[in-house]
């Protein structure tokens, strides 16, 4: 494991914890897309089914369990515990427009036509676009709380660091996973507009507006 992979994982973990703590501390999930969080729970569930079939390392297993646990805890907070604060009227992205094409693509373009591998591929494709309901919600309301922008920053940074990790692994290990790389590039590109706003307008302000 190289430093980019590790900091990528930690950045991902930071994003997940930041969101969970924000909701817990403020006892509100205003401005958070429950749909994106359901998609992330679906991503982790379909990807980490290999917890049941193969053991890679204690680190790997621990992180997977934490990611899955936090994803479902977040969904629980949004749709059950703090349901009254959930801004469903602005969370109107049609997720079937993501899940259905992504599911079809996973069937067509994969490394191996086996159930677990198709589910893994589905999770990789779905993760690349799972943030769209959240970005759509922010563009609809025209603003995001600072802590939400920190969440998005770390979530975007994680896949960008993975891209460097893949370049590293290609040169030093000959490792090359086309599906992960292409999806990772798409995922990172989706955050670019946000990164720009975060860096140029985010500092010193309490709220970030994304122009529609």
């Amino acid at each position: 494991m190289n430093i980019f992979r590790l900091t990528g994982d930690l950045s991902h973990l930071a994003a997940i914890i930041i969101l969970l703590l924000k909701i817990w501390k403020t006892r509100s999930c205003a401005g958070i897309s429950g749909k994106s969080q359901i998609l992330f729970a679906l991503v982790f569930t379909s990807r980490y089914l290999d917890l049941l079939t193969s053991f890679i390392s204690l680190y790997n297993t621990t992180m997977k369990v934490i990611y899955i646990g936090c994803a479902y805890a977040t969904v629980y907070l949004i749709y059950a515990k703090f349901k009254a604060t959930y801004d469903g009227n602005h969370d109107t992205f049609r997720v079937e427009f993501l899940v259905v094409p992504v599911g079809g693509l996973a069937f067509l373009v994969n490394h191996d036509f086996s159930p677990l591998e198709i589910l893994w591929t589905f999770s990789i494709y779905l993760e690349s676009v799972a943030i769209l309901p959240q970005l759509f919600m922010i563009s609809k309301t025209g603003e995001a709380e600072t802590i939400t922008t920190h969440y998005l920053f770390f979530l975007g940074l994680y896949r960008a660091l993975y891209l460097i990790n893949w370049i590293w692994r290609f040169y030093f290990e000959g490792f090359f996973d086309m599906i992960a790389i292409v999806a990772g590039v798409v995922q990172t590109i989706l955050y670019c507009d946000f990164f720009y706003l975060y860096v140029t307008k985010g500092e010193g302000r309490s709220q970030l507006s994304i122009p529609t």
Partner: peptide
Amino acid sequence: HALQIPHDEL
């Protein structure tokens, strides 16, 4: 034939 290609990343 393995159940799944091993994926060592998260």
